[in-house]
Each structure stands twice: as structure tokens, then as C-alpha cells.
Write a protein that binds this DNA or RNA. Sequence first.
DNA 1: ACGCCGTGTCACAGTTTGGTGACACATACC
DNA 2: GGTATGTGTCACCAAACTGTGACACGGCGT
Lengths: 226, 226
Amino acid sequence: MRVAGILLVEDDPSVRTALELALTRQGHSVTSYATGEEALDHIRARRPEIAILDVMLPGIDGVEVCRRIRKLDQLPVILLTARGDDLDVVVGLEAGADDYVVKPVEPRVLDARIRAVLRRAESAASDRITFGDLVIDRGALKVTLAGKEIHLTPTELRLLLELVRHPGQVLNRRYLLRAVWDHTHIADSRLVDACVQRIRAKIEPKPAEPVFIHTVRGFGYRFSPP
Amino acid sequence: MRVAGILLVEDDPSVRTALELALTRQGHSVTSYATGEEALDHIRARRPEIAILDVMLPGIDGVEVCRRIRKLDQLPVILLTARGDDLDVVVGLEAGADDYVVKPVEPRVLDARIRAVLRRAESAASDRITFGDLVIDRGALKVTLAGKEIHLTPTELRLLLELVRHPGQVLNRRYLLRAVWDHTHIADSRLVDACVQRIRAKIEPKPAEPVFIHTVRGFGYRFSPP
DNA sequence: ACGCCGTGTCACAGTTTGGTGACACATACC
DNA sequence: GGTATGTGTCACCAAACTGTGACACGGCGT
């Protein structure tokens, strides 16, 4: 099982050791600190994969630690709070926290949250673009719609990628012909239209009312997210 | 305290500052130099986690810097080059670069590449990689499937390792030819296909429905765990 | 309402692509 | 030398892909 390096910041010693024990049992490797300052001092050296921060801390509070971590690194952050205070949630999310857990928390719940956040962080690092339900992974050359993988042929994929490279821009047929097909194709042809139609049939929920690839009469096509 | 982050070497000041800004925004800490000499001078003191090198540099070029870095350290290297210079790819791979990015590059793409290379470097620390039933031991150069050892020939093993180095990424035939075979081979050849087929026959439970090495028609092959 | 122009839709045939097995040559190992 | 193994190439085939043309459709200006 994959082991995550967790940075835990919690000032209450009993809660800290309990969490540390629980997380270690789940297979994580945990480094914990009682204060934000210590954590920030060591974060560079430790290179954790995720930080779990108590909001109520002596000195710099968890939200502020989160903010500073965000300036340093893309490190995912989960905030822990004692009360279900709504204000905290807002502030925490604004500070860039990835998730928010209310104490007391069951270890298996926390573990699930950690894994979810890590999964999200990892996939965000891959070379992807997301437009609503539509996810285009340029590294894997995969397109998914609402989680379901869509099969696009090479030409369709090249055309879609070209459109997506210029979101919101209208691209005319001549440009698209040049960019997607080889230069041997000149002048006007229905080629682009047909290809757009094929893509729509695959990615548009209702091809007759396209949400992604819009026709701009007399000019060409525009990709714009819904 | 250890200073970790990205070592950037790029002679064009505008590109350099743009990249520096973009990478910093992504949460990286960046140190940049205009020449390879400066970079090499400071690399010991700075202890970066990854180096990003422009290929075209005054004085020592990026490829040579890469070669010298390799002699010093296991430091991962990404080479930057102007669009589509094939010769560079060959030389770069020979010099031991971990990845190769064509300028102009979008920040999010570069960021994804950086993270991929870092992840790879991290997992390279361990000699074994596991994908479901498939275990690849790079130290012993052994492959086992569900505990049973699979015999792969040298070429097959090199190809598999190259695919596995970029899990989830589509690699085209030209790239694979260059990475696995020497550059004497002409671009158009069924060599890669044949070798993939041979690997599949050995590691895929049902070669007709591959689970590990997927064909991406018109583009190449992708290794992705089941 | 009418016709026109730009676009959507569809079927089909020619082309391309990759899987597959056979085979020849090279190399290493007895 | 003889054998086994590894490697590159080829030909064939099935499947996938693509360009094209014909026709339908719908908005727009007259």
C-alpha cells in the first residue's frame, strides 16, 4: 500500500498522539508538530505529501499556516477544527485548504479524506484540462465526459485539441485545415464540418444544441466551456 | 537549511523571467541562471531538486550541462528546446535527460512535466515498481506476473521500462525508437509494433485485450496499470 | 412565402493502420 | 560446428479511419 508522508500540526498532545497513532496504523508516515512555526520551519526539509492542520493553534493559527504553505508549495492541506463553525469553513477554504474536517473525527474517515485529497492533487498535476464534465488529458490523449472515457479518432482528437488550445476564440476553417490536416489540403471543403460533427456526436450531450463546440456562422467554430 | 527547488537555465531574459514567474505561481521555488557555467558553479551549493535547461545556451550548451550534471548527481533534468528540432531529441536522450519539452510551453504543461519527473525520480529510488500483478524489478532486471517470473529479452525489457517510466502517457513510435533503439533506425518501421506485440504475448493475460500496454491508434502506445 | 447560402447529416468506398505469424539473419552459447 | 535465442523485416488481413458527395435543414434577406 502506498504510504503518504503526512505533516500533522496539533497543539493538544493527547489528540496529536492519538491521530499520529491512528494514521500510522492506516499505513501513513507521520511527522507532527505542536505549532505552526515549527511546521513551517521544517516543511521544506520534510517534503510531506499533505498537511493536516488544526485551526486553533497557539501563535500562528492553522488558517494562516495554510496560507503560508500555499505560498511555498502546492502541498494539499486539510484543516481540522473543533467546532462546526461555519465562518471557519469559509475562511479555511479561502485560504486554499483542500478539505475541512470537524473534530472529533474517526480515523477511517480522516484516512478517506486524506486519500481523496491526495488523489485529487495527483490528478491535478497531470497534464489535463477540464471544462465542466469534459476532461481532456493531453499526456494520456484521453478524453472523458462525466467520468466516462470517450473514444476519439486521431483526427478528431487533433481537431479538438486545436480548438481547445484557443478557448473562446473563433477559428476559421482554413486555419483548422492547416493546423490539423497536412498542408496538401487547400481551400474550402466540408472536411472540417464533418469532423466537428463527428466530435459533437461523441462529446455533446445534445449534438443539435452544442455546449462545447459552437458554430459561428460565416466564420468557423469556437470552443467555449459551458 | 537546505534550499530546494528548481534550477532554471535560460539565456533569454524575457523567457527566463516569464518561466520563473509562472513556476513560482505554481508553487515552486526557482533559482535561475543565464549560462550553464554559472549553474554548474552553484549547483553544489543550491542542491536543487530538478534542473530545467534550455538547449541553446551561450558557452556550454544545455545538453553538455545535462551531461555534466549527470556526472555529479542523480538530479533529474528537463531539457527545453525550440520547436521540433529532432536532432536535439536524440542527443538529449543520450545525454540522459529525463524529459524533453518544446518551447513555447504552457506553464501548466511544464508544471505537469516537472511533477511527473519528480514523481518518477522518487519512485526510481526504489528498484521495484508494482502495477497490479505485474512487478518490475529494475535492480534485478526481472519481471514477474502474479508471482511467476517472466523472461523478457533485453530489447523487450528496455522498451517496457521506457513505457513504464511514463505511466499513463502516450509515447509515439519515433520517441520509442530513439529511446530504446539507437538512432540509426529510420523513422518508419514496424519494429516498435513487433516488439510491443512480443511483450504483450508475455505479460498480457489476453494479448488481444491488453491491460498494460494500450495501443493509441495514430499516436503510439501507452502503459497504464489496470 | 420563397430561394439562397451556410451548415448538419449520412452512407460508402478507398486508404491507412496495427495485429499476427512466418522467416531470415545475427549472435551467443554449448 | 551445431543449436538456441534474439532481433529485424515482411506480407497478409481485419479493423478502423477518413474524405467525399449527395441531400436535408434552417436561418436570413428579399
